[in-house]
């Protein structure tokens, strides 16, 4: 309860500071010029025009669709690869260079390359998210499996389980809760990456709306979109947390 109150007071502090910095009717009387930072009220008041003229909902849909598609693809490939890497030393050694390379790659540098490979349509955006996320998802899944105590494997071995049975009946199900937590964090990352491609080039999407607002105004839309992104990310994380509790009832809340 105290933690909740502290969190709220932090938000109040930031909005308060924002309010003070943008106080005043005339542009000259403000500490920060309204062309750079609009007042909280001005930002909120620009919401109808963002929704109607700039088709906010359509862009939210476009962005979410790209992230979900690319991220799901990355999960489908990365989780099994990572689990294999965590289970078998040979698979780990085989995948190590790609994972290491992929995790350290400056992703912005990949954008021109994905354009070259996949054009500038939706496919390119989905593939960018996929390429950006797969190394992280693979590494996370591998470390989740490797984090499982050896005792579980030994117990299964003395109960007659084959290495295949250990992989599927012991390691995979024990690693899934941790993998899911990792995916929750990485989804936030993917959400950040999609902005990058959408700023670069897109016909809809939240990143596209930001770049339009920057070029054509109103600038208040930029702040508004940033706030909306934060709320969306929070909402998605809560949704995933809800699924997590339903999927893994055997995981005690600790």
């Amino acid at each position: 309860m105290l933690g909740y109150a502290l969190g709220v007071s932090c938000i109040v502090l930031i909005v308060g500071a924002w309010f003070l910095l943008t106080l005043g009717e005339e542009a000259e009387s403000r500490i920060i010029s309204p062309t750079i930072l609009q007042s909280p009220w001005e930002v909120v008041a620009s919401l109808p025009s963002l929704i109607i003229e700039r088709k906010l909902l359509e862009s939210i849909g476009a962005t979410l669709w790209r992230v979900i598609l690319g991220f799901s693809l990355a999960v489908l490939i990365g989780v099994p690869l990572g689990m294999a890497a965590g289970t078998w030393r040979s698979a780990r050694a085989f995948l190590a260079p790609v994972v290491l390379y992929g995790r350290n790659m400056p992703l912005a540098a990949l954008i021109p390359l994905t354009v070259l490979w996949f054009g500038i349509g939706e496919f390119q955006k989905v593939m960018f998210i996929f390429i950006a996320c797969v190394p992280f998802i693979t590494a996370d899944a591998a470390s989740a499996v490797m984090g499982i105590h050896d005792r579980y494997v030994e117990t299964a071995q003395t109960l007659g389980a084959s290495s295949r049975q250990i992989a599927f009946k012991v390691l995979a199900p024990l690693a899934l809760p941790d993998i899911f937590v990792g995916l929750r964090h990485l989804f936030g990352l993917a959400f950040g990456y999609i902005m990058l491609v959408e700023l670069f080039d897109a016909k809809a999407g939240l990143g596209y709306l930001i770049s339009v607002s920057q070029r054509l105004g109103p600038r208040a839309h930029i702040y508004l979109i940033l706030i909306i992104i934060g709320i969306l990310a929070y909402g998605i994380d809560r949704l995933l947390a809800f699924f997590q509790r339903g999927l893994f009832p055997y995981r005690s809340e600790e």
Binding site: H149, R151, Y152, E154, T155, A156, V170, P173, L174, L176, F248, Y250, R251
Partner: peptide
């Protein structure tokens, strides 16, 4: 064994 004895998901 003494510890980590149960398969938590079962």
């Amino acid at each position: 064994f003494q510890d980590y004895t149960s398969f938590d998901h079962r």
